[in-house]
Amino acid sequence: MQIILNNNQEEIPGDLITVAELLKFKNFTFKMLITKINGVLVQKSDYESAAIRDGDVVNVLHLISGG
């Protein structure tokens, strides 16, 4: 399936992937994240269950310390 991940077109195997699986697949190892599917926040506690499907727009923001 095709998704838009952080403004880039991505080919993802299968027709459904959870947020947790996507982070692993993309090797996103940052601990602190804000993730949105089609503009809606996915709470961290829902990463294992939140499903991403073909055509979804996914944004993963990496949070780093400093301020």
């Binding site: 602190m32 804000i34 926040l41 961290k44 923001l61 949070l63 780093i64 301020g67």
Partner: peptide, 13 residues
């Protein structure tokens, strides 16, 4: 305008 990443995550979420 927080300092630590975990606090930024908590606030934004």
């Amino acid at each position: 305008a927080f300092d630590l990443a975990d606090q930024k995550e908590m606030l934004l979420e």
